[in-house]
Amino acid sequence: MAKTIMIVDDSASLRQVVGIALKGAGYDVVEACDGKDALGKLDGRKLHLIISDVNMPNMDGISFVKAAKQLPAYKFTPVIMLTTEAGDAMKQQGQAAGAKAWVVKPFQPAQMLAAVSKLVLP
């Protein structure tokens, strides 16, 4: 059974490219455009990984991850946060919220795929 990954980013093109890469590698992909949208999609479905941007409208990535970690079904779901190299303070907040893995933007699809493979293989 394919592993399911949620990608949360306000950039539709980023979601599309990452989605293409992940689907190509054999993952199922769920997309959400911001934290609020993503939270709405945490409806109990099994997710093996969440990839989330930090800076998004409506609900930022840190708040989203924090909220997701309150839900039993996603308490232990690994999270990759997308950040800029300038985001050290942000990283600490994210760590505290429960996001331990970080990928620096901008990245190539292959880099994302490698990062994902470290946490879940398809």
């Binding site: 306000d10 998004m56 800029t84 901008p106 190539q108």
Partner: peptide, 19 residues
Amino acid sequence: INAIFRAAHTIKGSAGLFG
């Protein structure tokens, strides 16, 4: 300020994906 930052941030992030 956040909206301004986010615009630059998001464009940079996506642009990277397209090389």
